[in-house]
Design a protein around this nucleic acid. Structure first.
Length: 129
RNA sequence: UCAGUCGGCUGGACGGCCGCUCCGGCAAUCACCGAAAGGUGGCCGGGGAGGAAAGUCCGGGCUCCACGGAUGAACGGUGCCGGAUAACAUCCGGCGGGCGUGAGUCCAGGGAAAGUGCCACAGAGAACAGACCGCCGCGGCGCGUUGUGUAUUGCCGAGGCAAGGGUGAAACGGUGCGGUAAGAGCGCACCGCGCUUCCGGCAACGGAAGCGGCAUGGCAAACCCCACCGGGAGCAAAACCGAAUAGGGACGGCACGGAGCGCAAGCUCCAGCCUUUUUCCGGGUCGCCGUCCGGGUAGGUUGCUUCAGGCGCCGGGCAACCGGCGUCGCAGAGGAAUGGCCGUCACGUUCAUCGCAUCCGCGAUGGGCCAUACAAAACCCGGCUUACAGGCCGGCUGAUACG
């Protein structure tokens, strides 16, 4: 799994397509080249102390790692912003939400970010039960 | 046994599957990304959070900046004494005071007879203060007695006193005896305080004797005085490598601002830059392309983990700690690794049943729950402070019971 390291990459992804979920917010941005998909993780200090933030990031990272790599498209950058429920939620729930969020993000009219403000949020499709 | 106090230790265990990061070895010296610097990728072996990693409150190392010297000033800090230490506001051992029956514990604990300032409210009086109630005798008038006076008592006046009451955080030292009209260190004894001398102690300080007759109220986390210490910023420090773009310099080549007049050469004016303290005068230059040079941004690499190091033994010291010998190698991330999921067990808690027991309770079996508290390195050390489920060990104190 290729990780996002530079602050500029995170800022760019913030201007991409967003898909909010109860456990996290998924952001996606098309890079315009054909390298492997890259993933970044963000847990803000508002969520909690370092221990809780570390745990949320690691669980989210594990979700991305265990989900099939083919679901992530080459040339795309993904950023997961952790939320507090991801700390104690059952692991399978987070995986389900991640799959659903990926579908929503890919179904969106991803205009590669160049045309217009493409920060539109995609509403949840159906109930998450 | 109960209650308490002080100190130390620990901070779940084992296993399975899938991952991350660093180091070492091997291997194509190959592939990919990047303009470059550089980075990524394979296999094997090994290492991989804490007692507080935390708060960032002190002290250092290290790095850069500043600095002739170092004093003084200013500012900040520290503040009983001695020791430990690289250093400290830390630690150890003492001293003094407060609290506690005690083990213990707490204390910004120098100077208030250098100065300035403050001491609210209450109270008569609050700093060389003061008399409201009160106490005391004296004078006058009455009451009373009556021969007069004394005693008793009331009012008025001029005085004496500060014992008692009352106010307050604090009232020109406390208790007792003497003394006196009543009182007062007025006198005496003891205590407190101060001074002197002697003794013990390195010292803080303690003890004794004599003298003084109470003078020196408190606040210095009020200014201040005294002694000692301190240059500033911080690993986003700093060093090295180093694009693109813009700008600077050198060289070469090409071209030679605008307007007016004029066929043209040219002339005049304007714009703009540099030199010039400024104006005038005078001089120079302007654009494009290419190559090279230097500064430097993004970015990258280093700094980055071996030390005031851990453990054991011996020796010195009451101790903090120091010395010697042996041994070990013990995280190095960088949008930030050290994990995710699961199983079993221990521990804990709770419920049910059974047994023992006067009770508190103890034991066994089975089931359920949680699978732990606090909190995660960010250059590195020494401390302090704060947070912390559960468990273990030891010293000491008090009470009770003694088989």
């Amino acid at each position: 799994m290729e990780r996002l390291r530079q602050r500029a990459d995170f800022l760019a992804a913030a201007g991409g397509v967003k898909a909010p979920a109860p456990m996290f917010v998924l952001q996606m941005k098309v890079r315009g080249e054909t390298g492997p998909a890259r993933v970044g993780f963000t847990v803000t200090k508002r969520i909690g102390g370092a221990v809780e933030r570390n745990r949320i990031r690691r669980r989210l990272r594990e979700v991305v790692r265990l989900s099939s790599p083919s679901r992530m498209r080459p040339g795309h950058d993904y950023v997961l912003i952790g939320r507090r429920p991801a700390l104690n939620a059952p692991f399978e729930r987070i995986k389900d939400e991640f799959d659903r969020a990926l579908r929503r993000v890919h179904a969106a009219p991803s205009k590669s970010g160049s045309s217009g403000k493409s920060g539109a949020e995609i509403p949840l499709q159906g109930s998450v039960e």
